[in-house]
Amino acid sequence: MSPQQSVKNYGSRGSRIFDVLNVILLLGLTLITVLPLLYVVAGSFAGESEIATRPFFLWPEKFVTSTYEYFFRTDTLMRALVTTVCVTAVGTVVQVMLTFTMAYPLAKRYLPGRALVLNLVIFTLVFSGGLIPTYLVVRDLGLLDTYWALILPLAVNPFYLIIVKSFFQELPQALEEAARIDGCSELGVFWRIVMPLSKPIIATFSLFYAVAIWNDYMSPLLYIDDNSKWTLQVIVRQLTGANAENALSTLDSVFFPVEGMKFAVVVIATLPILFFYPFLQKHFAKGVLIGSVKE
């Protein structure tokens, strides 16, 4: 097909109909995604009576901030928020470092036993120990009721590890050889040459790991019995469950706005990810694709 025919077909009636339907479909999907979020934000600023009487709204009749004021003056909620932030920050650093330090030597074809280790990594993509064996391992390691139980069991994602390994294999070997000639050790090559060149993929997988830790409620539910160590996601689960009214009454003796708190906690649990994503967006697409396709 010639370029003239391609331009002609692009402006045809069928092409225009397709574009219109495509736009309508994308707008519909956007509304399906955005409207619930807007409703949650609006509900967090609405009073209890308005939430009870209006099944759906995108703008409250009267803005109230009492729900957020209660959140930030309640020890249980603030402690859960601080715990989640700290666990996410430490966990992301630990998981990224373990993933990258394991992927770098596996990218070297001369590494003894490399094939065996890679096969074991790939094996975990298909098979896992399961919930009960994992719990028993965490218990026997003495990690129950500790924050490390929320970090170490999922410290290395095998799929991410393989992508990072492929990325390291694509880096020019001449750079590493030049660094070794200048006197760098293997560790020096990794820190001074490889890591600075890996900023896009570091940003991407830091975001992946951080989102996974931040949204994880199953691990604290299984491994944390002390409610003073609960993360924010456990609080969200408690508040949005069937016994929401009694969820925090056992921890705080004061009355709290049940319905408004459901919306406020969801907003607070969602905002950090929405805030940090734009700063990492420029690295996101490049980091997802890089290392996944061999040129």
Score class of each variant (00 low, 15 high):
Leu81His: 04
Leu232Asp: 13
Thr30Asp: 06
Gly241Gln: 08
Val85Met: 12
Leu58Gly: 05
Glu50Gln: 12
Leu289Gln: 05
Ser49Phe: 07
Lys108Tyr: 10
Phe18Gly: 11
Arg16Phe: 12
Ser198Thr: 05
Leu106Asn: 05
Thr92Ile: 00
Ile181Ala: 07
Ile268Thr: 06
Val7Gly: 09
Val23Asn: 10
Tyr70Trp: 11
Leu37Tyr: 10
Val41Leu: 14
Lys286Met: 07
Ser292Gln: 02
Phe63His: 13
Pro220Leu: 03
Val267Gln: 09
Glu50Arg: 13
Arg54Leu: 11
Tyr217Ile: 04
Glu295Ile: 01
Pro278His: 13
Phe45Met: 14
Met97Ala: 15
Leu131Trp: 04
Glu50Val: 03
Asp216Pro: 02
Phe256Cys: 09
Leu77Ala: 09
Val20Asp: 06
Arg139Ser: 12
Phe190Gln: 07
Leu274Ala: 15
Ser66Val: 11
Gly91Pro: 03
Lys286Leu: 09
Phe167Ser: 03
Ala269Val: 02
Ala103His: 01
Lys62Trp: 03
His283Leu: 01
Gly188His: 09
Pro172Leu: 02
Gly28Pro: 04
Cys86Val: 15
Ala247Gly: 10
Met1Tyr: 15
Val23Tyr: 11
Ile32Cys: 13
Ala107Tyr: 09
Leu221Lys: 02
Leu239His: 04
Leu25Asp: 01
Asn157His: 05
Leu239Pro: 03
Tyr70Ser: 00
Lys294Ala: 07
Val94His: 01
Val117Ser: 06
Thr134Met: 04
Phe279Thr: 05
Asp145Ala: 04
Thr146Val: 02
Pro172His: 00
Met97Gln: 06
Ala155Lys: 00
Ile162Gly: 02
Phe18Trp: 09
Ala174Phe: 08
Val93Lys: 02
Thr270Leu: 08
Leu77Glu: 08
Gln169Trp: 09
Val194Ser: 00
Phe45Lys: 03
Ile213Lys: 00
Ile163Ser: 01
Val236Phe: 15
Ala80Met: 07
Gly241Met: 01
Pro112Glu: 07
Pro3Gly: 13
Ser185Ala: 03
Leu239Asp: 04
Arg79Pro: 03
Leu271Glu: 06
Ala103Tyr: 04
Leu251Asp: 04
Thr84Lys: 05
Asp19Thr: 07
Tyr147Glu: 12
Tyr39Lys: 10
Ala269Gly: 15
Ile235Trp: 01
Val94Leu: 11
Gln95Thr: 09
Met102Ala: 12
Leu221Ala: 10
Tyr68Pro: 01
Leu232Glu: 11
Phe168His: 01
Thr231Gly: 03
Ala107Arg: 00
Ile193Val: 15
Asn22His: 08
Gln281Lys: 11
Gly291Pro: 02
Leu271Met: 07
Gly129Asp: 00
Leu289Thr: 14
Pro60Lys: 03
Phe190Val: 14
Val90Cys: 00
Tyr68Lys: 08
Gly260Phe: 01
Ala210Tyr: 00
Ala103Pro: 09
Asp19Asn: 13
Ser44Ile: 04
Ala149Gly: 05
Gln5Thr: 13
Pro196Ser: 08
Ala46Arg: 06
Gly291His: 01
Phe57Asn: 12
Ile51Gln: 14
Ala179Tyr: 12
Val90Ser: 02
Lys165Asn: 11
Thr240Phe: 06
Ile32Thr: 10
Val236Gly: 03
Leu154Thr: 10
Gly241Tyr: 09
Leu171Tyr: 11
Cys184Tyr: 14
Val40Pro: 07
Gly28Val: 06
Glu176Thr: 13
Pro220Asn: 05
Ile193Ala: 06
Ile162Ala: 00
Leu161Gln: 05
Thr231Met: 14
Ser15Gly: 13
Gly291Arg: 00
Ala42Ser: 15
Glu295Asp: 08
Leu98Glu: 01
Ala269Trp: 03
